[in-house]
Amino acid sequence: MPASPEVATTLEAVRSAYRSALGALRDCPGPELTGWHRDHLGRRSALAALRSRVGALPAEDRAAAGRAVRQAADDLATALADRREQTAAGDPAPADRVRLDPTHIPDTPPPGGRHPVSLILDEAAAHFAALGFVFRDAPQIEDEAHCFDLLGVPADHPTRSPAHTFYAEGAAVLRSHTTASVLRVLRTEPAGPASRFVVAGPCHRNNVPNARFVHQFHQLEAVAAGPSVRMSDIKGLATGFVDAVLGDGFDPRLRFRRFPYVSPGLAVDVECAPCGAEGCGLCQGSGRLEIMSGGLLAAGVLRAAGWPEDLPVAALAISLERLLAVRHGLGDIRHFLRNDLRLLAQAR
C-alpha cells in the first residue's frame, strides 16, 4: 500500500537531515563535536522537530515514521562516537588534512635502470644457479682453435669466413658463440665426477644486422657433466627455463639439429610472440623462433678438453636477445643494441 503524502514528505525530510548531519560530522574538528551534537541531535535539531511531527501523522503511518527517525538518530550517534575515537587517536579532522589526489600516479620512470639484456642475463644465471650451475668468466677474444678447430668446425665451413666472423690481428677471433668459452673452461677444469657451470656474455658475428641477427648478441650456455647426465636432461633444462622465463604459455619445440661439436644436437624453438606466429622479420615468416641450441658434447671436443671421451657433457646455449624479443613482444632484436632510453625506461 503506498504511503500517504505526509509520511513520504516526513521520511524524505528525515533522510535529508541525516545526510546533512553526516556531512557536517566528517569535516568537524575534534573540539567542535559537542556543538555538532547540539545542532544535529539536540532538542532543537531538525531530527527533534521531525520526531514531534510524527505524532501528527495518521495512526497507521506513525510507527514507520517513528522508526525512521529513531534509526537516523541512532546512526548519527554511532557516527559521532566513531569520530570522537578518531580525534582521540590523533587523526586530524578531514578539514585539517592535506588535500591530495591519490589517483594521480606520475608516469615518470626512475632516473636509472638496468639494461634488459643484463637483467635477463642475471635472471638466467640465477635460474641455473638454483640448479647448481656456477658462473664462469670467459674471454670474448678467442683463437681459431677454440672457436672452430677444436670444436670440429671444418676449415671450409661458411661460418669461418671473414664475412661471418670477426678476425683480428695475431689469429685472434671474437668468439662467435659461447661454446668456444665452454671448451676453454673445460680445459682449465679437472674432469670431475660432476660439474656444472654457465658461461655468458657477448658474442660477435659479422652479419648484416636485421630484425633477427645482429653483430653483437648475448648468449648464456649451461653445461652439466657427469656419468648420470642424459640427453633428456637437456630437454628438461630447456623446457624448465622456458617455463621459468617466458611462462607457461610458450610450448617449446625441440628440433633435431646438427652442430659439429655436439652429438646428438638440438634446437629449441618457441612461437614468435611479436607477430603471434603470423610471420614477421624476426621469425622470417616461419612463426617460430630458435632461442636455444645444444646437445651432448662430441667426443672430439672432450678429447680436446682433456676430458674422458665417454663422459656425457650436456650443453645448452640460450640466445638472450631473442628470448627478450619473445618475452616483450618486440619484433626486432636490434632495439637491444640501439640503447634508446625511451625503450630502456620501459624495461625497468
Partner: peptide
C-alpha cells in the same frame, strides 16, 4: 644511471 650495452666492435 641508466645501464646500456654498446657494441664491442
Amino acid at each position: 644511471f641508466q645501464e646500456v650495452v654498446t657494441p664491442m666492435v
